[in-house]
């Protein structure tokens, strides 16, 4: 039985163009478009599945719906991931953890709020321990409504996110809309990263100490290395001629 190539469940403008032109194996494009094509076709997911939406999310990754056919695979580490899918109720105790994981994801990154609890808190909204929507602390790109939404709806959310990435590569403005009162929390990382003026040498020292407490880091003598780097930087700035 021959494979019917006209039937494709997922298509992309680049694929479509290359399929239409016979013998085409080289094409030119801009770097932005190439990079955005790479981003949208390899959306690695970091799941934060805290309740029943998480069960539907598992069906999204399983064989019937199969998010993998558009390059979206589920990863267990925020440092490998491009898109955080928050599926479920986020409590006040969980929110700082989610924010910390979000801060650990490398740019560019996107967030999808799945289900009415992640979007607005739903009927748990007024309970003392529930956060009324994850957009109070992280910026959200796509909202997938439902209680819970079915896996096809989540797939639709991923496709909308791809459209968004493509639109931003084409120069259209797709900035995330945030609640005005929440922008401060969304932009403020809990730990200032390297190069941030808010970062102190005390924090450097604490992080090195915690790394050293793992054991074999002692051999690297990181603390001394850090001191010498700081000393070099200080010398450099002193010897730098004033303009």
């Amino acid at each position: 039985m021959a494979v019917d190539e006209s039937y494709r469940t997922y298509s992309h403008p680049v694929y479509d163009f290359m399929m239409k032109v016979p013998g085409l194996d080289v094409m030119t494009t801009t770097v932005d478009k190439l990079l955005s094509f790479g981003s949208e076709a390899s959306l690695w997911i970091f799941p934060v599945a805290t309740s029943c939406c998480g069960i539907e999310f598992m069906a999204l990754a399983a064989s019937r719906v199969d998010a993998d056919r558009m390059g979206a695979i589920v990863r267990g580490s925020p440092r490998h991931s491009d898109v955080m899918i928050v599926a479920g109720t986020i409590t006040v105790k969980m929110a700082p953890r989610v924010k910390k994981l979000w801060d650990q994801m490398p740019e560019p990154k996107w967030a999808i709020a799945v289900g009415s609890c992640a979007i607005s808190g739903d009927f748990y909204r007024n309970i003392y321990s529930v956060v009324p929507g994850i957009d109070t602390f992280i910026p959200v790109d796509v909202y997938v409504p439902g209680c819970p939404p079915n896996p096809e709806a989540m797939m639709h959310g991923l496709i909308r996110l791809q459209e968004k990435i493509r639109a931003s590569a084409n120069g259209r403005d797709v900035n995330r809309e945030a609640r005005p009162e929440a922008v401060h929390h969304q932009r403020l990382p809990r730990l200032p990263i390297l190069g941030d003026p808010a970062r102190t040498s005390e924090l450097d020292r604490q992080q090195v100490a915690s790394a050293a407490s793992l054991g074999w880091w002692d051999e690297l003598n990181l603390e001394q290395a850090l001191d010498s780097v700081a000393k070099d930087l200080a010398d450099e700035s002193e010897s730098e001629p004033k303009v």
Partner: peptide, 17 residues
């Protein structure tokens, strides 16, 4: 303690609520 009857429902829990 949130299950006390005098715990107001709109008590602020900074910064998440």
């Amino acid at each position: 303690h949130p299950l006390r009857k005098d715990y107001a429902i709109d008590t602020k829990v900074h910064p998440w609520r």
